[in-house]
């Protein structure tokens, strides 16, 4: 196990973490307000698609990211109409919207991106931070990534600050914990939930866009391949707190990177077991550990 292979592992882990981080931070905000998004995967998938399509149409990666945001928000809005307006069960709506997202993006792939020319967009260049990126082992991982990776990690303290230090964040948590009490305090519960949900949609869409626009440069069917569910697990495992979520995602993405580079380490763990890891540790953490943090009391409960 050489230091260069560790360095490569870390580079992969950090860049794999970014899409997950966007989605999971969005979900953290939403779940703190009491809205659960099983369709997190679907929102990522839609974002991944609209991102590529937008970048192709507008010839701009950045407008592509904007379209990714719009795609995630659109699916979130459907969830909001079903659950927040018509009080549908959030779980059912989420499951169904995942099916919708998979169908719609597969359809769009054929209809809109059918030609190979349409389905190939330039990816984000890496931005190398001088000096810092030359730090041995961790330098390339932390300081030689594309801009949206930096943004993803900078979002962690931002979300923490918003949740813990702003009136908006307090109101958000009040809505997720005791919606009735929040309402009696003059907090507009429905509006807060909508906001949280749409922010989640935006971030999940961004996460999907990160996957295609920063990484692959193309959309393929079901390109997210369950990353939305991993992000969902990370929110639970991270105890509904941004720093905890970051920790969970670094653990999961390192496992993912290890799986890709397992040969380099001479390890013989079947990759499926590494792929199971996020789910297994989340279940074990819920079942075995005495929880310091629990889910917001009104999570998934319509008011």
């Amino acid at each position: 196990m050489t230091s260069s292979s560790i360095s490569l592992l870390l580079v992969a882990a950090i860049s794999l973490a970014a899409p997950l981080l966007y989605a999971a931070l969005g979900e953290t905000i939403s779940e703190n307000a009491g809205v659960i998004n099983i369709q997190l995967e679907g929102m990522m998938l839609v974002g991944a698609f609209t991102g590529v399509y937008g970048a192709h149409v507008f010839h701009s990666t950045w407008l592509g990211f904007l379209c990714a945001v719009a795609g995630g928000v659109a699916l979130a809005a459907v969830h909001g109409v079903a659950c927040l307006v018509f009080r549908a069960n959030q779980i059912v709506s989420g499951v169904v919207l995942n099916i919708l997202a998979l169908g719609a993006t597969s359809y769009g792939l054929v209809v809109l991106l059918g030609s190979s020319a349409g389905n190939s967009v330039p990816t984000l260049a890496r931005v190398r931070i001088p000096l810092l990126s030359s730090i041995p082992v961790i330098g390339p991982a932390l300081f030689d990534q594309n801009v949206m990776v930096y943004v993803a990690f900078l979002l962690v303290p931002v979300v923490w600050w918003v949740l813990r230090r702003t009136g908006f964040g307090l109101a958000l948590q009040a809505v997720g914990e005791r919606p009735q009490a929040a309402s009696s305090l003059g907090v507009a519960v429905a509006r807060m939930r909508w906001l949280a949900l749409l922010i989640c949609g935006a971030l999940a869409g961004l996460g999907g866009g990160q996957l295609t626009l920063a990484g692959l440069g193309a959309f393929t069917q079901n390109v997210t391949a369950g990353r939305g569910f991993i992000a969902l697990a990370a929110v639970v495992f991270g105890g509904w707190r941004p720093w905890g979520v970051l920790g969970a995602i670094l653990l999961f993405s390192t496992a993912d990177a290890f799986q890709i580079r397992a040969q380099a380490f001479g390890a013989h763990i079947p990759y499926q077991f590494l792929a199971m890891l996020p789910y297994l540790v989340t279940i074990l953490a819920l079942a075995v550990l005495v929880r310091r943090r629990r889910a917001p009391s009104a999570l998934g409960v319509n008011v």
Binding site: G167, L170, A171, Q173, A174, E177, R178, A181, A182, L185, G186, V187, P296
Partner: peptide, 16 residues
Amino acid sequence: IPTLTVGENLALALQG
């Protein structure tokens, strides 16, 4: 809100 501190609850109430 039980999960928030006394100070946070007060801030929330004043904001409301």
